[in-house]
Computed example of a mutant assay.
Amino acid sequence: MRTERSLTRLERVFSRLDREPERPAHIDVPVMSRHRVVLFSATLAFYAAIVWAVLITSWLVRLDWQLMFFRPYQQWPEVHAFLDYYVVLGQRGPTAVMVAAWLGWRSWRQHTLRPMLALGVSLLLLNLTVGAAKLGMGRLGPHYATEIGSNEMWLGGDIFPSGHTANAVVTWGILAYLASTPRARRWLSTLSAVISLGVGLTTVYLGTHWLSDVMLGWVAGLLILLALPWFEPLIARAEAWIFSLRDRLRVRSRRTAAAPAAPAAPPVAAPAPVPGPAATRRGPAQEPATARDPSVAARSTRPPHLAPGPHTPRSERSPVTPGGSRRPPHSDRVPRSTTTSARPLA
């Protein structure tokens, strides 16, 4: 009879979290294959085509103006409050914090810095490419348009391409790029596509971007994801350097902790006492004990309430002869005289 209790789904999740972090034996690192190069080239050509269509004020610009006059936020006002919060999924700060928290936990679990480094490289490329395009073309948004039917280029704006859309493609697409299994990659690719598509259309609904801005933002984010395999060797070298620096710091800290303590300074001997009259009578042949042993000198220091002068042991003191006889007086004895005559020798 089976008595083991089957674990629930939540208990299995917590049991996996309690396991010791371990680095996977094999990490699938994408490489810049021929298929990816062809896809990158086609996406780059589409990017240039969108920019050219806006520059020559083609049908794409006329479609931008038609959507602006349609004012979707007035056609469907009931979803306005929800889309105001949904568009936050394309803002760089909140999305970067959420994705960095997940990739940081994954880096700790797998003992690798590749997820965090890949996220940093993708965000750096996003800021450089999209930011340069925004400032270089200077297109104004629908709310600040000056002339009906114009492309509003080089007028000091910064909306072409859409930063929200490109950021949504990169930050959510990096999860699919770093997926460890094909199944997870498919699910995350679908999720990132839905989020980025919704963020782009939300900016058109709110009237903050032209449709051509959103299209160029999708293409710009996809270009960054397709170009990431070219930076994989740089990411690997950066990870190896960081780990080697960590190991050197650990070794240095262990050596510092294991180093012996500095030797204590030798005790300073007390100054030798000035010889008194008794030491002068002993002469140079007899050396006092304080000169032979510094500890005796330290112990021989007399307190201030005693008489000054060096202390000498009893064996070194000069004998003192009493002035009179030590015998008690006797009445029946006659004291000897010093003038008695000498006895005759036999």
Rank of each mutant, 00 (worst) to 15 (best):
V51D: 12
V51H: 10
V51M: 15
V51P: 06
V51G: 12
W52S: 05
W52R: 09
A53W: 00
A53P: 02
A53S: 07
A53D: 03
A53G: 06
A53K: 00
A53I: 03
V54K: 02
V54A: 03
V54N: 05
V54M: 00
V54T: 02
V54I: 02
V54D: 00
V54Q: 00
L55F: 00
L55P: 02
I56Q: 07
T57K: 12
T57W: 10
T57N: 13
T57R: 13
T57C: 13
T57I: 12
T57Y: 10
T57V: 14
T57H: 13
T57P: 06
S58V: 10
S58A: 09
S58E: 04
W59K: 01
W59I: 04
W59E: 03
L60W: 02
L60E: 01
L60S: 08
L60R: 00
L60A: 11
V61G: 01
V61K: 00
V61T: 05
V61L: 01
R62H: 11
R62C: 08
R62N: 09
R62A: 11
L63R: 04
L63Q: 00
L63N: 06
L63S: 03
L63C: 07
L63P: 03
D64F: 02
D64C: 03
D64Y: 06
W65P: 02
W65T: 05
Q66H: 15
Q66F: 15
Q66R: 15
Q66S: 13
L67M: 06
L67W: 03
L67V: 00
L67G: 00
L67N: 03
M68E: 14
M68W: 10
M68L: 13
M68I: 14
F69A: 14
F69Q: 15
F69E: 14
F69R: 15
F69S: 14
F69L: 15
F69D: 14
F70K: 04
F70M: 06
F70S: 08
F70P: 00
F70R: 06
R71P: 09
R71D: 14
R71Y: 11
R71G: 13
R71M: 13
P72Q: 04
P72Y: 02
P72G: 00
Y73D: 10
Y73E: 11
Y73H: 12
Y73V: 13
Y73W: 12
Y73Q: 12
Y73A: 12
Q74L: 14
Q74N: 10
Q74V: 10
Q74H: 12
Q75L: 15
Q75M: 15
W76Q: 09
W76G: 05
W76I: 07
W76E: 11
W76T: 06
W76S: 04
P77K: 08
P77D: 01
P77I: 05
P77V: 04
E78P: 01
E78V: 05
E78D: 10
E78T: 07
V79Y: 11
V79Q: 08
V79I: 12
H80A: 11
H80M: 11
H80P: 01
H80W: 12
H80V: 08
H80S: 14
H80I: 07
A81V: 11
A81R: 12
A81D: 10
A81T: 13
A81N: 12
A81E: 10
F82E: 10
F82L: 12
F82I: 05
F82R: 09
F82D: 07
F82A: 10
